[in-house]
Design a binder for these strands. Sequence first.
DNA 1: TTGTAAGCGTTATCAA
DNA 2: TTGATAACGCTTACAA
Lengths: 347, 347
Amino acid sequence: MKTIRDVAAAAKVSTATVSRVLNKSGKVNPVLEKRVLLAAEKLHYRVNLTGRNLRTKSTQILALIVPDVENPFFTAVCRGVEDVANRAGYSVMLCNSDEDPVKEADYISMLTSHNVSGVIISPTSSKLTDVSSLVRRGIRVVALDRKLPLKTDYVRVDNRTAAALATQHLISSGATRVACINGDRSKSTAKERLAGYLDALKEAGLVADPKLQFFVDFKEEGGFEATLEILKMKDRPDAIFVTNNQMMTGVFHALREHNVAMPEQISLVGFDDLPWVDIVTPTVTTVRQPTYEMGMAATYKLLSRFNGDNSEPQEIVFEPELVLRNSSVKLKAAKLSQKLKVSQIQA
Amino acid sequence: MKTIRDVAAAAKVSTATVSRVLNKSGKVNPVLEKRVLLAAEKLHYRVNLTGRNLRTKSTQILALIVPDVENPFFTAVCRGVEDVANRAGYSVMLCNSDEDPVKEADYISMLTSHNVSGVIISPTSSKLTDVSSLVRRGIRVVALDRKLPLKTDYVRVDNRTAAALATQHLISSGATRVACINGDRSKSTAKERLAGYLDALKEAGLVADPKLQFFVDFKEEGGFEATLEILKMKDRPDAIFVTNNQMMTGVFHALREHNVAMPEQISLVGFDDLPWVDIVTPTVTTVRQPTYEMGMAATYKLLSRFNGDNSEPQEIVFEPELVLRNSSVKLKAAKLSQKLKVSQIQA
DNA sequence: TTGTAAGCGTTATCAA
DNA sequence: TTGATAACGCTTACAA
């Protein structure tokens, strides 16, 4: 492996000059410059980033820790992060915690030791995930989607409004018993979406029935199992609000498998789009988040922190959008969503 | 930020002893050991991996470069890579080249300079993608899914057999004009799948019609557009073989939008599963690859290279599996697939 | 403008 | 068993 010394020797200059040429820092005699460039080329020289990082204490790497790399929500976020990061000269390291606090802690530890420039994280737990080692090292952290226990910059959608929007839509379409299939409450998103669901019930004068609230993991399996339970109930709900996309796949699967007609027997509203919501029968009504933009926003925030922005931790809240499709009754809903948009989004 | 010197000072020992304790290398007096551990704890000491890497010339990082992080095929691969890598003490850095040769080159350059331990890559081009900078530095490279121009270890599915399997199934179900919607031929997978498709036509005594072969990008949009063209043809095909999952979404979308009955009017077979193939109407017949296992295999190969395995570059080929569902005619197909399994998989 | 040399944090050699 | 010290490859005062 060739080092800067090899290039210096070949070009008959000092390492300092090589560094200056290669980094375009400081003035260099064009003749020497040419010699350096030629030598570097000939020797296939590549800077050793480990050496540079040790010296400059900066890695130009952003890390993105997501709880489920197979969830399109997070890969869309990733695209947003990458696009902004790359343009600013940063590489993105994507880490998959797999909803496993141990794996997550390992990644946080590794990234701390690795001295990455910044971290965007959607934590496995809004109560327990510990990013203090990063913060202590001065590594900037931005929470995305889910809150962190520590007060940090935080990019999210207005989950409460989103859930209320979905639930109100179901109620105004005629549903009287709306089930909510939710993730476990250690995630802030699950808590907020539950709150929005309850808001809507209350506003409609409906009693919240704990038997209609399911707290499973945010995975397909969880949605499937919860739906099977729902189908077994004697006082069966006439609508389901499912609070994440992976669970939605399970719910839809279970409903189709049991030939439950949507929306006639059960209306369905999901959270986050998936490539298939438009091609199944019936198409599925969802609450949509601007995922790509959220990834971009988190990255911009990180970059501004690098540039010395030391203002208070900021919460950046995006507005959700209810996309009406055929798994829920459309007509009344359209009117409602108009009303809601005006009242809530302007709030 | 605390360094090993701070710990040494606090524990009143040398940095060498601190290093020995923390890395469990060499014998240390238990009394000193306790002092070191305590000091490290108290000071919140974390090893600086940049320093360590510079010294040891090993990063314990594997990189996985994929052309589309939003494709479930690659995220499933990623899971396989991660699981093996983490168990062996490596972290995984996932890089998204986005089918963009420039982005890909940037990542390769960055990873070269960063001295990662090994790279698994599914290249944007089997002709042009240049990993020589990695190889020159002694960084091991394993190709996955798609071949590299350079001869390296290579993990793939038997694409040719897979495509033949799919096409033969369509033909034996009664199709006489089978269209093939394919990726562009700069990817080895596209070339091999085309070959398998042609094999099957030939074997059945059918003439290959170039008008039935579409070469678009491996994305949803490409599948959608190609299908629209197909639907406009006066001598319309009675079957479609689409060679990747993202394109399959587009194909299915277009067929549903135009109310084409499957399999009555057009039979459909796709490549790679997606979460929705089981829940749409009709369910979609696909050729399945063992994605997770392929990720694991690539990583095992990398690890064995680290351990001094210097044998010839190896090609690891997995067998595909035809999963019959309702978008193609089932009965005859079942018999055929039996026959094929016996004859081809044992080959 | 160019070169010398220190130092980033770590590990590992060698001497004690 | 422990410690002093060199070295990894790079950037950057500072000196020339």
